[in-house]
Lab assay of single mutants.
Amino acid sequence: MAEQVALSRTQVCGILREELFQGDAFHQSDTHIFIIMGASGDLAKKKIYPTIWWLFRDGLLPENTFIVGYARSRLTVADIRKQSEPFFKATPEEKLKLEDFFARNSYVAGQYDDAASYQRLNSHMNALHLGSQANRLFYLALPPTVYEAVTKNIHESCMSQIGWNRIIVEKPFGRDLQSSDRLSNHISSLFREDQIYRIDHYLGKEMVQNLMVLRFANRIFGPIWNRDNIACVILTFKEPFGTEGRGGYFDEFGIIRDVMQNHLLQMLCLVAMEKPASTNSDDVRDEKVKVLKCISEVQANNVVLGQYVGNPDGEGEATKGYLDDPTVPRGSTTATFAAVVLYVENERWDGVPFILRCGKALNERKAEVRLQFHDVAGDIFHQQCKRNELVIRVQPNEAVYTKMMTKKPGMFFNPEESELDLTYGNRYKNVKLPDAYERLILDVFCGSQMHFVRSDELREAWRIFTPLLHQIELEKPKPIPYIYGSRGPTEADELMKRVGFQYEGTYKWVNP
């Protein structure tokens, strides 16, 4: 592979701008107003304001973009700056750019259920340069409990009458099928589907988006991507930290609602779906819905739930269990780990287990898709061969690698495990991989909904998990304890083995 010439960040961002501006969906010269509902909250200060700053800094926003914060707290732009700027990672050389960014910011205080507050917000936006005809993007960085009041008031008082209007809704989209349907029906009564952007930030990850290209742009994968060759698929999300004093919020939802029903299920769809007619948003989402419709409700015998306990040999936070978090209700049975087996009941995947695993306070930070292939028929190497695996590593250190057998150097035919490896950090030294939120917010500006969740996708996802969630809430089974920093409950490994996964433990990928 030829040595790549190092590029400056300015040059890299210039390439990104060229890609972005050559499309006809990006209205570079139009006025846009980006409204952050819930501007005083954690999500706004840690993710949304920093993301908008990065896009502005790199010249990736339309030229005439204004940012308006809205929340109940009586704040000023200076207050917003004070709480969000520490997350910007701005350099001293960017000081003038930073001043320009905050000059485009404003803030309006108001209630979430008060019509007069929204009329005041609308008047404020109209007073901005060309504000009355601007395109408006409303980001709901809010708890779902206020979605209905907020969307109703936005629709009645704050819509642009000339430009387009788009609304970005953060997960969780309800707690179960019934609450999700209620919320979807409410929002759909106010906005068209092409105006609604239900954001799952995992769909903005580079390697998640790469799944489609790997599958449908490489001839070698087509013939082997089926039940005849693939023994099982494992989708993993692991965090090495616990709730760390923020367990009160987590306890309301648990690990299945927080990660599995959305992030992991979306990745499953991209692995299992048929080739779409095109890369058009609805063509892709149509195929994802077909996959979900082929999955039956989760069966309790295919589920393992766990909850982390303190590690007596650990240090600091590792010595504390979930129930030691003062914000967690006493005696909570909320799971911090889950392993679930699903089956896609169609011709391509009949009988292939899709194993979804996620948890907190585990032994490493990792998100990946792992396809394990069947054993080689007619073994001539005296059971020395391990199964081939194709691994798409989402985070950290984005990579695609194939675990395969090669001859060990020497005189004899002794096979050993090795890999074919594409590590993004080595291959793409001159490429700026956008943060997931950067990519998705740019998608909203461009009107691309491919990486957002459609209402029928959402409904099918909740259909699969709601009976299990209701059973857990009714019966309150005690989750299996696992030690902070471990791989999780051993019962999860036993479940995976029972459905056909072979864990060798003899080879570990190392970032080159």
Rank of each mutant, 00 (worst) to 15 (best):
W53G: 01
E193P: 00
E252H: 15
F56Y: 12
I162C: 10
F191G: 03
I230T: 05
I33V: 12
L137E: 01
N210W: 04
S189M: 13
I80C: 06
R9H: 08
L183R: 01
M37V: 09
K95Y: 10
N126I: 10
I187Q: 04
D200P: 01
H186C: 11
V169G: 04
S188Q: 08
G245Y: 09
K171V: 04
I168Q: 00
R246S: 00
F21V: 14
T65Q: 03
M207H: 03
D251Y: 02
N126G: 15
N229E: 06
S160A: 13
H27F: 11
P143I: 09
S117Q: 08
G204V: 00
P223G: 07
M207T: 03
M125D: 00
K46W: 03
Y139Q: 06
I33D: 02
G41E: 00
R227L: 07
R120Y: 15
S180Q: 05
S29M: 08
N165L: 11
F88H: 02
E148Q: 13
L211S: 00
E85I: 10
H32D: 07
L7G: 07
Q195I: 05
V68R: 03
G248T: 02
E239S: 06
L20Q: 09
P62F: 04
L20R: 15
S84L: 10
K45I: 07
F221W: 15
R166N: 05
L98G: 00
S106R: 13
F253T: 04
I80K: 00
R74W: 15
I167W: 05
G254L: 03
F241I: 11
E252L: 09
C158A: 15
N165S: 14
R166E: 01
Y70L: 13
G110V: 02
Y49N: 02
W225I: 07
L96G: 11
F138M: 08
L98W: 03
A44M: 01
N64F: 08
S180E: 05
D42K: 02
H27P: 10
N126S: 10
Q161H: 13
S40R: 00
A127M: 11
Q133K: 13
I48N: 00
F21S: 14
P86F: 07
R175K: 11
R198K: 03
F173R: 01
S157R: 12
A149S: 14
K97R: 14
R219F: 08
A116K: 14
F138V: 09
I187R: 02
F56G: 02
N218K: 01
L140Y: 09
A116D: 15
E244D: 15
L137H: 02
G14H: 15
K152Y: 11
E85H: 06
Y112A: 02
T151S: 13
I52G: 00
L7Y: 15
F253Y: 11
K95N: 09
L190Q: 11
A231R: 10
G23A: 12
Q83L: 13
I224L: 14
G247K: 05
F241R: 00
K171W: 04
R81E: 06
L214A: 08
T10N: 15
L203Q: 02
Y249Q: 03
A6C: 15
L96I: 13
L121G: 02
V108E: 07
M212Y: 04
S84K: 03
I255S: 01
D24L: 05
L128P: 09
G38S: 01
W164C: 08
E170M: 03
L61W: 06
P144I: 03
F237E: 01
K46Q: 02
Q195G: 08
F26Q: 13
H129M: 15
D30G: 10
D42F: 01
Y112W: 06
N229M: 06
I196N: 00
V146P: 05
V208F: 04
E19T: 15
N105R: 03
D100I: 09
V213F: 11
L7W: 05
A231K: 14
S40Y: 03
E244T: 10
F101G: 01
S188N: 13
Y139H: 03
M37D: 01
K95T: 12
M159A: 15
H155I: 03
R9E: 15
F191S: 04
I80P: 01
K45R: 14
H129I: 12
G69K: 04
F21I: 15
E18N: 14
I255G: 01
A115E: 14
L55E: 05
S123I: 15
L183G: 03
V108Q: 09
C13A: 13
K205Q: 00
L183K: 03
R227I: 01
D58S: 09
V208Q: 00
I167T: 09
I168M: 09
V68P: 03
F88V: 06
S73Y: 02
I15N: 08
K82Y: 11
R219Q: 08
F191A: 02
E19C: 15
Q209P: 04
D113E: 10
T76P: 05
L128D: 08
M125K: 02
S180D: 01
F253M: 05
T243S: 12
D251A: 06
R215M: 00
Q178L: 13
L75W: 10
R72Y: 02
V213P: 11
E156A: 14
F21Y: 14
V233N: 02
L96R: 10
Q161C: 13
T243V: 11
L20P: 14
G174H: 04
G23E: 15
I67T: 02
L20V: 12
K95R: 14
Q178F: 12
E206A: 06
G110L: 03
E99Q: 14
R81S: 06
E252M: 11
F66D: 05
K46D: 02
P144H: 02
N153V: 08
A141T: 06
F88Y: 08
R215P: 02
D200H: 02
H155F: 10
L211E: 01
S123N: 15
A217Q: 06
W54C: 06
F56W: 15
Y147G: 01
N185C: 12
D194F: 07
R246E: 02
Q119K: 12
E206R: 05
I80W: 06
A127N: 15
Q209G: 07
S84W: 07
V169Y: 08
L140D: 04
Q161D: 14
K152S: 14
G248C: 05
I199F: 06
E93A: 13
A134P: 09
L55T: 08
T65G: 03
L43D: 02
W54P: 02
K152D: 11
V68S: 01
L121K: 02
G59D: 08
L96V: 14
L130Q: 15
N135I: 04
L96H: 14
P144C: 00
H155C: 11
E244W: 13
R219S: 09
Y70N: 07
V146Y: 02
Q22L: 15
K46T: 02
Q178V: 13
V146I: 14
K152V: 10
E252Y: 09
F237L: 09
S84R: 03
